[in-house]
Nucleic acid binder design. Structure first.
Lengths: 408, 408
DNA sequence: TCATCTTTTAAAATATTTTTTAAAAGTATT
DNA sequence: AATACTTTTAAAAAATATTTTAAAAGATGA
């Protein structure tokens, strides 16, 4: 059950004519979604539909309640134009971000406003209908609370870790129990379409639509938390590879003489760079007597996790910063390979480690200076995400809009 | 001067209507180019233009001489359909492949038939108008010989090594003297449009349109000759990166403890794998007394180059094969990185070393088994190109058709 | 072998879209 | 404040495409 943009009930005429009209409606709505606000004349220019026809289509959409009159704009030398915008409350989009231990549900209106955001910690992911039942319950709670019926939901976007066949809405790693595929399964339970994809890719989409990748053509989005994920945007599009396996950046070869990775191979990037490795190295150092802010917690028998290490770094803990620097050098080596192969405009660092800001960006940049061909690497910006924890969630919204409105 | 698909003289009406008609003509011609042969009914199905209109447009195109009646097709249960095809001799495409020491000029008709192919050895590339004057002369010779006027040339495609801004037709590495950009410069001299791009990318386009990448979505095309080039097809499209630098596969890091590369960095793939390295290693071995078919030539004071090494390998020379095996292992390591990042459907080995066939494919596959995650690498086929020396040339044809007919 | 069913093409009727023309509502300038 | 100039919108006229209907040509099966 893929989402569609349709007003079938309202339109008469033959099949072909209806389709054409639908396409014209979609063009107009999608343009208004992107610009927020436009006059008839601007729509004409963009849509290449004639002015009288645009006027009549906009009229229809006003009648349906899809569009709103948005006052009168500034003139540039003549009659002041009437402006139109999408009715933000005409429909809503549900965004769901499933993580191993945390569930986040968001509700967006058609002006991309976050109406509601609910985060459920210790909502442990398990492969059972019990889990999806709870999930569906939580989603319905959010909708009920805002008094939104299923027919008012344009579609739901879902971000989930692991292997995904996005086209058919099938998850191979988690929630695999549903025979018809996770997307269809949830869709049936919920009563509206569900669009899903892998978390790293959703983060990339989020950055492309609402973050620092906006307007960029070729961007790589790193998800640096306990492990390493990579979402790839090439030629303005999300790239997934033949089977949706693209982006296994954590398992490219960095050190042929290195340790064995959990994947079985020797010297993968993830044996040298990841939140887990950082935490391990910090713990080992402290056990060996290294001075650090984290010593006290350790002495109290608390286990130190990534959250604490990041906090220590941001508090200027020299030892933790040293460990991050070491790690970032390897990360830089890995990124050099990406840059040489893909010549991206920008690399965005996201995930928990992005919260260290300059503490990770600066050593990565240093590593690029050292290991990359300058001609190529000087074309690539390296920045931290500013979407904090919401990149994937925003990505689900963008994914829904892409499907429904076929935004570029 | 970008190529356009136009029959302006023949069409009346207002600007907008003319444009629409042009677009409809283009749709039909492009469909016939791809299928070779189709009935009105098939065009209707594909173009989503109504049957009476398609009939009238095809009529126009027959009148212009663009299309030909191609007899009557097989019925599938009713009246036998009239078939139409592009008039192969309506226009021609010139394809030019510039290499450092060799120039190849080809002439194609609109059915992709190679009408003429001229190869000029020792046609050394130099950055001067003298070179382009000679080039233009050779092209005109070929056209004159076949009695083809400039107006009968749809456009010319050009493949050239080095850095290229394909969009604006500017070459940054070779033939940089022309102020208006190489494409425009040649265009003015020749009297028809010129479309140009980098040689590795043209090889990839050639494979996509006419070689083993046909119908595939994500394919990597290696150009293995003296150096290493990589042409990348992702989501069915050629990928160039932000500045057209994408595909610097030869300079990804393989061995942090390795030799210094000519690019300045340590341990690049090209310090371990390339035609040059293979030739060097073979020569060194023979100097040290290694038995080989190549010993005789060496003793006679002839310098052994890549062509000879490839021949020796194909004759079963054990030493040369050993050296190739060693090299292929490194190449495999590099390809693992590509596979993990991009999850391609297929990797095509082209260039001079592709002529060793199984001698290179088998050890590369072995290396993939060893170094790559099976789940991902088992999805990727590794094959040798079967376009021999013409991949880039065929790519220029495809590039022209892409520009003019906007083939998928 | 004839009647029925398909598919393809053509022509007439209908519907839609665009172009043209003009009016309305502003701005800028003298 | 009046005039000239723009831009935006609306309505009528013209052009264009689509649907419907029908005819032509061949396939299939009793």
């Amino acid at each position: 059950m893929r989402p569609e943009f349709k007003y079938e009930k309202e339109i008469a005429g033959t099949a072909n004519a209806r389709n054409r009209k639908q396409e014209q409606y979609r063009k107009i709505v999608s343009f208004l979604y992107e610009t927020g606000n436009a006059s008839i004349a601007e729509i004409v220019k963009h849509s290449k539909i004639s002015q009288p026809l645009v006027a009549s289509l906009v009229d229809d959409l006003l009648g349906f309640g899809v569009l709103l009159d948005n006052g009168i704009g500034e003139s540039i030398g003549g009659r002041r134009p009437n402006l139109y915008c999408i009715n933000p409350a005409y429909q809503y989009v549900v965004g769901v971000d499933i993580n191993l231990h945390t569930l986040t549900i968001a509700l967006f209106d058609l002006s991309n406003q976050l109406i509601r955001r609910e985060e459920y910690k210790n909502f442990d992911l398990e492969n059972s209908s019990a889990y999806t039942d709870k999930l569906v319950g939580k989603i319905n709670d959010v909708l009920n609370e805002k008094n939104i019926s299923t027919s008012q939901v344009l579609a739901m976007g879902l971000s989930i870790p692991g292997l995904i066949d996005a086209k058919n809405g099938v998850s191979f790693t988690h929630l695999t129990f549903a025979e018809q595929g996770l997307g269809n399964y949830l869709s049936e339970k919920l009563g509206f379409s569900v669009v899903l994809d892998n978390d790293a890719r959703m983060m990339a989409l989020g950055e492309k639509a609402f973050g620092k990748a906006k307007g960029k053509k070729d961007v790589l989005c790193l998800n640096l938390s306990n492990r390493i994920g990579l979402g790839i945007i090439l030629n303005e599009q999300l790239y997934s590879g033949k089977n949706g396996f693209a982006g296994e950046f954590g398992h490219i070869l960095i050190d042929p003489e290195g340790e064995q990775c959990y994947c079985g191979k020797i010297g993968c990037l993830e044996t040298l760079t990841s939140g887990e490795i950082l935490v391990r190295n910090v713990n080992e150092g402290i056990e060996k007597g290294q001075a650090s802010f984290l010593r006290q917690a350790k002495d109290e028998g608390k286990s130190i996790d990534l959250r604490e290490v990041v906090a220590a770094i941001n508090n200027g803990d020299q030892f933790a910063i040293d460990q991050l620097n070491k790690m970032s050098d390897y990360l830089g080596k890995g990124l050099v390979t990406l840059i040489h192969l893909l010549n991206p405009e920008m690399i965005i660092i996201g995930g928990r480690l992005a919260q260290t800001g300059k503490y990770i960006v600066d050593p990565v940049r240093m590593a690029l200076n050292k290991y990359a061909m300058d001609r190529i690497s000087s074309e690539t910006e390296v920045v931290c995400s500013d979407l904090i924890d919401d990149a994937a969630l925003m990505g689900t919204l963008s994914n829904v809009m892409k499907e429904v409105l076929r935004i570029s």
